[in-house]
Design a protein around this nucleic acid. Structure first.
Length: 208
DNA sequence: CCCTGATTCGC
DNA sequence: GCGAATCAGG
């Protein structure tokens, strides 16, 4: 697949919009993210630095002894130390909206979670609330069981495919996220989905 | 393990 | 110019 003006345009557009290389590659099709990144660099779009390196100090003794080493390791990265002109990078991709017929129910880790009010991750549906209520005993038991086998991952480990169910008290060190594989599309694993999302009717029936 | 971009280098 | 392989990091 060649880089037609057309495709390059799309590339520029998406890259400018903050899309990731893999996203762009997927959109274009026929190329890998590596191809996209490579192109981005060749186009000089890597990081929009309109600045010219101030010829302040030129103590660069051309440190590139890459001579007879097919797989020589790259030299220390030369990263421009500046972050000022960073784009908003606000995640705004929400392919799916939670069904309105479902109601998110707060986590109940046996004990009680008080803090954790604001979303931990941008764009992620995770505003657990303390006011828990009746959840099917079976489901609850299931959750407790799952929490014993949970991966207990950190915030950084969270991905689109890891259960984001919080376990423990965020105010203490004893806090993790479930981390098990999510139920396709959902933010939680199967067990946690079952307690997090309940049909409105179900809640009503139980509650009243 | 999932992902991100950065870099190198044979083609 | 291209991009797979690799690196470095979250």
């Amino acid at each position: 697949m060649a880089w037609t003006d057309d495709r390059v345009e799309t590339l520029k557009k998406m890259w400018g919009d903050g899309a990731s290389a893999s996203q762009i590659a997927k959109e274009l099709g026929g190329v890998t993210r590596n191809a996209v990144i490579g192109k981005v660099h060749r186009l000089g779009l890597s990081n929009r630095n309109t600045d010219d390196k101030p010829a302040v100090a030129d103590a660069k003794p051309a440190p590139a002894p890459k001579a007879a080493k097919p797989k020589a390791k790259p030299e220390p990265k030369a990263k421009t130390p500046e972050e000022t002109t960073e784009p908003p990078a606000v995640v705004e991709d929400d392919d799916d909206d939670e069904p309105r017929t479902m109601a998110a129910v707060p986590p109940r880790t046996g004990n009680n979670i008080t803090a954790l009010r604001k979303p931990l991750m941008a764009g992620q549906p995770l505003p657990p609330q303390p006011s828990a209520n009746e959840i099917s005993p079976e489901a609850l038991a299931k959750v407790n069981a799952v929490e014993r086998t949970a991966k207990k991952i950190s915030l950084m480990e969270l991905t689109e495919r890891t259960c984001k169910w919080p376990i423990g008290d965020p105010a203490t060190e004893k806090f993790w996220f479930c981390g098990l594989g999510v139920q396709a599309g959902k933010p939680y694993c199967e067990a946690h989905v079952s307690v997090a999302f309940q049909p409105m009717s179900s809640r009503r029936d139980r509650k009243r």
